[in-house]
Design a binder for these strands. Structure first.
Lengths: 151, 151
DNA sequence: TCCATTCGTCAGTCTATCTGACGATCACTA
DNA sequence: TAGTGATCGTCAGATAGACTGACGAATGGA
């Protein structure tokens, strides 16, 4: 009798996205740790992805990342404590706080982009340059169709 | 000056996997809730994906899912309480417990696969049948190259 | 000048993972 | 066959990362 779990027969598209995604995360955050930033966890990417060179308000970061300001504050506090961010009161709005990358934070962002590019190059090596390019284009079109922000 | 966050210029492959994955999850688990199973959360898929028609030991489930037995026990307990699983002592091993899907659990698994297939069909509608097929093949090859289990 | 809105924080909750320790049981071997 | 080391599942506790609700301070428009 066939007692294999159903998903061994044909993987769902969800699994086909999840498994590479998790592998990619291990590569990128492992690489970040190897480069001297073991404190950076996947959740922190929400900050690095959305902050921009001139910094941003906490609320703006939260909105761009699609999460509550409380959750974003939790991430920002950790990064600030580790010296990746600095924050200062907004001179134009006494309620607000402008969060910015420090030089150390800049290096993390750079490493993050480097490691992502390297990982993508390794994918191209494994499945072929043409196929990898098609994969990227298909995903870009899908994301476009979803109409997603950067999450 | 250009103050856009870096990731608005070119998305990393990670983001290109994550955004569709999250969209897919919303569709699938939203659909599951609409079909009368609002208690099923994404983490539970680790159980449904790996259990198989004859059931499995807790430890086997944990190992297949790549998590600790304590974590798997947490998921299994929730599903058992909700009537999706039943568990019985293993007649061949006094230490072990065999976990199995109930009829209700079978319906969830069926719905999960249905909804995944529907979501995949919608992707094909949006980005084109050919491109969707290429996307699936590229991802399958990538997963193969990783040598991943089903996670 | 008032009042509704917005900004960030405090407090508490929940989910989903982890580690460490442990009693019960099994399976092998001396 | 008795002893012992490995394995099964559970207990207890910690942590990350998200949430909701409430709130004081500051803003800005009527």
């Amino acid at each position: 009798m066939d007692n294999r779990p159903v998903t061994e027969r044909r993987r769902t598209l969800g699994a086909l996205l999840r498994l590479p995604y998790e592998a990619l995360q291990r590569e990128v955050y492992g690489g970040l740790a190897a480069r001297g930033f073991p404190e950076i966890r996947p959740a922190h990417s929400a900050v690095f992805r959305h902050i921009g060179p001139d910094g941003a308000r906490l609320t703006a970061l939260a909105e761009r990342a699609g999460m509550t300001k409380q959750s974003m504050a939790y991430l920002v506090d950790g990064l600030e404590e580790a010296g990746h961010l600095r924050s200062a009161p907004d001179p134009n709005d006494g309620r607000a706080r402008i969060v910015q990358l420090t030089a150390k934070g800049d290096r993390v962002l750079e490493a993050l982009l480097d490691l992502s590019a390297e990982a993508e190059a390794r994918v191209a090596d494994r499945i072929g340059k043409r196929r990898a390019a098609k994969l990227r284009r298909a995903l870009e079109e899908w994301v476009e169709a979803i109409g997603a922000g950067t999450g």
